[in-house]
Nucleic acid binder design. Sequence first.
DNA 1: GTGAAAGCGCTAACAT
DNA 2: ATGTTAGCGCTTTCAC
Lengths: 342, 342
Amino acid sequence: MAITIKDVAKRADVSVTTVSFVINGHHSKVSKSTLKKVLRVIDELNYHPSRQARGLVSRKTGNLGFIITEDHFSRAEPFYTKVFLGTEFETREFEYYVLLKTIPTDFNEESRLPRFVLERNVDGLILVGKIPTTLIQRLKSTKIPMVLVDYYLPDENFPVVLIDNIAGGYKAAMHLINCGHRRIAFVGGDMEHPSITERYQGYRMALEKSNIPFDPALVVVDETYLSTRNGYCAAQKLFSQTKNVTAIFACNDSMALGAMQFLKERGKKIPQEVSLIGFDDVESGLTVEPHLSTVRVPKIELGSEAVRLLMNKLQNNSVAAHKVLIPVDVIARESTCRVNGN
Amino acid sequence: MAITIKDVAKRADVSVTTVSFVINGHHSKVSKSTLKKVLRVIDELNYHPSRQARGLVSRKTGNLGFIITEDHFSRAEPFYTKVFLGTEFETREFEYYVLLKTIPTDFNEESRLPRFVLERNVDGLILVGKIPTTLIQRLKSTKIPMVLVDYYLPDENFPVVLIDNIAGGYKAAMHLINCGHRRIAFVGGDMEHPSITERYQGYRMALEKSNIPFDPALVVVDETYLSTRNGYCAAQKLFSQTKNVTAIFACNDSMALGAMQFLKERGKKIPQEVSLIGFDDVESGLTVEPHLSTVRVPKIELGSEAVRLLMNKLQNNSVAAHKVLIPVDVIARESTCRVNGN
DNA sequence: GTGAAAGCGCTAACAT
DNA sequence: ATGTTAGCGCTTTCAC
């Protein structure tokens, strides 16, 4: 049987209360000498208070729930995995644990809430990526503090950690413009997803800022998923009408990779004939030739920031920063160059 | 305040004992009519018993700990992520949760054990990938049931889930041999890791079986990490002495990808001049040209099997299968072909 | 078949 | 500054 608070109390010849004060840091309520004594016994016995028992009375579980759709988490690119890792790293700081829960994409009214919510086994919730609205609403009504990551609902006011997508889209397009390009295509899809729309907004802003006329024919956004395969198809559509495109801004690296594949098959030299930039800085952008230029997103940061936001709420009940924008930057690698291949 | 067992008891006009019997499935101790009544009230109130409270008395936490080194989990290839996902999927079945804990690679005597171990917040442990022996030993002494995944200690007897690496290595080499190759290189590294040694064993077995003389000059295993970069270097070493190699079996896809990069730069046509096969079936093997032939490892399976093994121990205290070998198969894609490019 | 009551390991009034 | 005690929400022994 494991060591309990009673064992410590007995051995240190004090009451459990005193021991409790010590382990909870209420040191002012304990004399210096007893404090030392208790601390020594705790060390000798290698005592660690039971999470469960503490939780039962303090109504804290020491757990955070991480909710994400199945398809998001198991995507080839470890984007959300990195975010998850970021939360894991950051929670150490706070002595919390993260419980992961993947939910089906088609979560609906009938679906059961995650068990850790029903059984009150989490103190806070981190919702990552696009999450069905009905789930968010039902979660909201549980009153468990929550923060969204890389997704938000326009008419709700949850604390949220977002990629600065507008700035990212702007910087990506600007990078191409600075390279002398003017016929810059935007390859996207799922304009339902705020992130994508924002990257598109940034793209539009950069064009406008640079007095480059916007040509709707250069925008391909009719793909539903942002996959490599759809990137391929989008590029295909784009070039089926040859509009002398000299550069492509794909709304993420997956699509960029698909587009790259198409360009190669079509015999287009990258970047000499067509420059290509993605978004996300996914690992496989480096296994490909030429190395993909992209917009780096600090994924670990997204996770750790989410935890900080939540802990702030949980521990200080502060309502400080409600919206955190994580800055991003262009990584110019080999798939972009000055127009005309210079 | 959340609904408690008392609320249910009161409303159903029975004692808490009866409610407890109902939620624990001791239906024989309850009359049919009360059972129905209690069930109805539970449903009406949407009652879910508190995990913490149950755990406190039953000495079960409903959690499993997943321990992995930092570098393993954050590797570019989502190999272990998939394994983790597999555990997450499988635990639903058993109403358990998985707590992830990444540990530093240099975990030593001084390092603190994972908190969930100290605070007895897990019922079982899943150790994944290469884990410092000292940690395993210290964990062993806690008596918490554990299972290893994709790693084992030769002189210990833990339940373990392994990839059938020998068969995999054998099949990979045999695939090349069946394509007519006889000068087949093995590119490896970290022969400390059992998995790698086993793949190598399989390679040797295939050669022997086919009466192909073994040439130590075709084996490059002096790289420490199994990274893309080191695959590149290994290939470089291999070809620095041009031994008319016609095929390479790399011990994992990362290294294969590195080797591929080298071959391309060297102007070697793949697979016409050199066939190349990897191991793991990592996603980026498909983003590369030509698509990488490899040995597919069912990663999700590794995780779910680990959970099943552990649950078997936990729920039935059975000591059934102690060692599970997960079968693997060659996926012949574009990077391998008959010798001489036929 | 059902209920009263003890107790899991801990926290926090309240009393001293 | 320290101890006594009543719970937290549940399971389970023991009576009835």
